[in-house]
């Protein structure tokens, strides 16, 4: 696969109260961002288990973007405390096993941050295109 036609698949887990609403705002504001992202809406980013992230990578995702409320703004008060615990740990574990931790990104995006949402998705997609297809995916396909 040549780099020029590489269209990455990116899975987004966005919390219902902040980032998903931010995505909505980006949409109604007609901000452009690449269509490589597939969005899964969750009630809280704290409900995203490392299982879901790993499963996404196993099934061929090139990147996973998790969006939640800023710390202190969680609809469930402290749900995102668990999000960052889990994701920081998972990023470090992926690094140790050489599974490209940069493919997993966590960003706090509020419902008012439409432009930030579009920019985050743009930057993340660019980054993933530069990285190329995920090693985990290639290994899964070869098996």
């Amino acid at each position: 696969m040549s780099d020029t036609n590489f269209e990455p698949k990116i899975i987004g887990f966005f919390c219902n109260w902040c980032t998903y609403a931010g995505a909505d705002l980006a949409g109604v504001s007609r901000l452009q961002y690449p269509p490589n992202i597939r969005v899964i809406r969750v009630m809280c980013s704290g409900t995203v288990s490392p299982h879901h992230v790993l499963r996404a990578f196993q099934k061929g995702a090139d990147g996973v973007l998790i969006g939640g409320c800023h710390i202190g703004d969680c609809h469930y008060l402290r749900g995102n405390f668990m999000t960052i615990k889990r994701m920081r740990f998972l990023q470090d574990l992926l690094k140790f096993t050489g599974c490209e931790p940069g493919r997993l990104h966590l960003e706090w995006i509020s419902a008012a941050e439409g432009p930030k949402f579009a920019e985050t998705v743009r930057n993340f997609t660019e980054k993933i295109i530069k990285l190329g297809p995920s090693r985990l995916k290639l290994a899964a396909r070869a098996a």
């Binding site: 710390i71 749900g79 995102n80 405390f81 960052i84 615990k85 966590l106 706090w108 985050t120 930057n123």
Partner: peptide
């Protein structure tokens, strides 16, 4: 447990 405060920072992209 969730914790009373969160001191961890997200990693830059």
């Amino acid at each position: 447990f969730l914790g009373d405060e969160s001191t961890l920072e997200t990693k830059p992209m």
